[in-house]
Simulated scan of single mutants.
Amino acid sequence: MKTYTRSQLALRNGQDKPEIWVAFQGLIYDMTESKLWKNGKHYEHWAGQDLTPELADAPHSEKVFEKFIPIGILAV
């Protein structure tokens, strides 16, 4: 898998580029086709960032990411 920087991830926010990507636990997921991520927004969360620290506030567990295939690795 290709490695992407936080700056590269930030551009995939549904606004700057048409892709809608988010990171979770070091992996990057493409949410572009998800109905829950229209225009790069999912409730109060925005695409193009690492959502790992925000999961504690979510009404779901990390198992939600099992529905998606990781497309990259977030550079440390």
Score class of each variant (00 low, 15 high):
residue 44 E to R: 07
residue 70 P to W: 09
residue 37 W to T: 08
residue 41 K to M: 14
residue 63 K to Q: 07
residue 37 W to G: 05
residue 49 Q to H: 12
residue 58 A to I: 05
residue 40 G to H: 15
residue 45 H to P: 09
residue 6 R to C: 04
residue 20 I to P: 01
residue 72 G to F: 06
residue 12 R to I: 00
residue 65 F to K: 06
residue 25 Q to K: 15
residue 55 L to D: 01
residue 22 V to A: 12
residue 8 Q to R: 04
residue 11 L to Y: 03
residue 39 N to T: 07
residue 34 S to I: 04
residue 73 I to D: 02
residue 59 P to V: 13
residue 32 T to N: 04
residue 65 F to Y: 11
residue 75 A to C: 11
residue 19 E to P: 02
residue 40 G to C: 10
residue 51 L to D: 00
residue 15 Q to T: 09
residue 55 L to N: 01
residue 9 L to I: 09
residue 76 V to D: 15
residue 3 T to C: 11
residue 52 T to C: 03
residue 31 M to A: 06
residue 17 K to G: 01
residue 71 I to R: 00
residue 67 K to C: 03
residue 14 G to K: 07
residue 33 E to Q: 14
residue 12 R to Y: 00
residue 16 D to G: 00
residue 10 A to D: 06
residue 20 I to H: 00
residue 26 G to T: 10
residue 61 S to H: 11
residue 9 L to S: 01
residue 45 H to A: 10
residue 1 M to H: 09
residue 25 Q to P: 05
residue 8 Q to H: 05
residue 16 D to R: 02
residue 30 D to S: 01
residue 62 E to I: 07
residue 47 A to D: 13
residue 68 F to V: 14
residue 43 Y to E: 04
residue 50 D to A: 09
residue 29 Y to K: 07
residue 69 I to H: 02
residue 43 Y to P: 03
residue 41 K to S: 11
residue 55 L to I: 07
residue 65 F to T: 05
residue 4 Y to A: 09
residue 35 K to G: 15
residue 9 L to Q: 07
residue 40 G to K: 14
residue 11 L to R: 13
residue 68 F to C: 07
residue 66 E to D: 13
residue 40 G to W: 12
residue 25 Q to V: 08
residue 71 I to M: 03
residue 15 Q to S: 11
residue 8 Q to G: 02
residue 41 K to Q: 15
residue 67 K to S: 10
residue 61 S to N: 11
residue 56 A to K: 13
residue 46 W to E: 14
residue 49 Q to N: 13
residue 42 H to P: 09
residue 8 Q to I: 02
residue 9 L to A: 11
residue 69 I to T: 13
residue 52 T to G: 08
residue 29 Y to H: 08
residue 33 E to D: 15
residue 52 T to Q: 05
residue 45 H to L: 11
residue 31 M to C: 11
residue 36 L to G: 12
residue 33 E to A: 14
residue 58 A to E: 06
residue 54 E to K: 11
residue 61 S to L: 12
residue 46 W to T: 12
residue 41 K to D: 04
residue 22 V to S: 02
residue 52 T to E: 04
residue 68 F to E: 04
residue 10 A to S: 15
residue 75 A to V: 06
residue 57 D to R: 06
residue 37 W to I: 03
residue 62 E to H: 03
residue 49 Q to I: 08
residue 36 L to V: 04
residue 64 V to N: 01
residue 67 K to E: 10
residue 50 D to P: 05
residue 62 E to Y: 08
residue 58 A to T: 03
residue 72 G to C: 09
residue 32 T to P: 07
residue 30 D to I: 00
residue 20 I to E: 01
residue 56 A to G: 10
residue 39 N to H: 12
residue 70 P to Q: 09
residue 24 F to S: 07
residue 72 G to Q: 07
residue 32 T to G: 01
residue 21 W to C: 00
residue 53 P to M: 11
residue 21 W to I: 01
residue 6 R to W: 01
residue 1 M to T: 06
residue 45 H to M: 09
residue 4 Y to K: 13
